[in-house]
């Protein structure tokens, strides 16, 4: 090994993750945006709870960009003259709680069932796959409507319904990946060295499947936010005066021709949240993959 290579190796071992993050502009911006969202999630309702529900009829459908009604009205006012900015901040808690919990449970349950279906196989695998077929052949919105009419539309029920309707995607992807990974030689090698089934699933299969699932999770995140908004629109999701971004989009749709900002800003919030999640998860995937990490570690040269 030449000295240059050795040096590169030393740099590689010593570069901490935050310095890698600082070097990647997009990933850094995404991380900052998500941090801001998380701050809104933690503090928003306490700081802006009152402003989000205060009516100011003189500021009805106030266009964005003016501060004559105070800086809270910078993003405009909604149909009842409430501050858009305050509402966006306050809505982040409900939105993120529902979307994150739902995708998280969908991923855990789907991933778990998918691993059983792929690794244990045969009988129980068939049962699980037919269960996924049933879930997928049933229109998810219809399922949600039925369940939420029977049960009451609370946040918990909403999360459960959304998680169940998204579950088959995780299940199928996990199963397909497991079927491929279990045939790899390192799984045979683990078997030959006396690894138990549980050990192989935990140590050899899960770490290889996990990045794929995390990538789907970030995409699913936005799908769930929109699904939640359509349920709210049908009157069986989150009910006013509670707010979510999806509900704000649904409410703003009525005013699209007169006041585009009512639907635009919450839509933008959903889009940015998804985009940041996507960029950051992509970055995380590269950092956590030992064979890809060097791409980020490569020292910058001047002519790049």
């Amino acid at each position: 090994m030449t000295t240059a290579e050795q040096e590169a190796l030393i740099i590689r071992r010593k570069t901490p993750w935050w310095s890698l993050l600082a070097r990647d502009k997009f990933a850094l911006a995404a991380a900052l945006w998500l941090t801001l969202m998380f701050a809104c999630f933690l503090l928003g309702p306490e700081l802006f709870g009152k402003a989000a529900t205060t009516l100011n009829l003189r500021a009805r459908n106030l266009p964005p960009g003016s501060t004559e009604h105070g800086w809270l009205m910078f993003l405009g006012g909604d149909a009842l003259g409430r501050s858009m900015l305050a509402r966006l901040v306050v809505a982040s808690r409900n939105t993120l709680t529902i979307a994150l919990t739902a995708v998280f449970f969908a991923m855990i349950a789907g991933g778990f069932l998918g691993m059983i279906a792929g690794y244990v196989g045969r009988g129980i695998g068939h049962v699980i796959m037919r269960f996924a077929d049933v879930l997928q052949s049933f229109p998810s919105l219809l399922l949600a409507v039925v369940v939420l009419y029977v049960l009451e539309p609370s946040v918990t029920n909403l999360i459960i319904v959304l998680a169940i309707t998204r579950l088959p995607i995780y299940l199928r992807v996990t199963r397909a990946e497991v079927l491929e990974i279990r045939e790899r030689v390192f799984v045979d090698a683990a078997n030959a060295l006396g690894g138990s089934r549980y050990h192989i699933l935990r140590r050899h299969i899960t770490p290889v499947v996990a990045p794929t699932l995390l990538t789907i999770l970030t995409v699913d995140f936005s799908i769930i936010m929109l699904a939640e908004s359509s349920l709210s629109f049908l009157g069986i999701g989150i009910q006013p005066p509670e707010i979510t971004w999806g509900l704000m989009v649904a409410q703003g749709r009525n005013y699209l021709s007169q006041a585009w900002w009512l639907a635009f800003f919450p839509g933008l919030a959903i889009m940015l949240a998804t985009l940041s999640g996507n960029i950051l998860s992509n970055w995380l995937r590269v950092v956590s993959d030992p064979e890809q990490r060097w791409r980020l570690e490569k020292p910058r040269t001047g002519d790049e």
Binding site: R184, V185, N191, A192, G194, G195, R203, P207
Partner: peptide, 28 residues
């Protein structure tokens, strides 16, 4: 099979042809 796995590694072991694929790529 579970009893046989107790023998594997401790009393009988195997080296495979292609070491690149027989080692897990995501761990040191």
């Amino acid at each position: 099979i579970s009893q046989w796995r107790d023998y594997c590694g401790r009393e009988i072991a195997m080296v495979f042809q292609d070491a690149l694929t027989s080692l897990n790529p995501v761990f040191s």
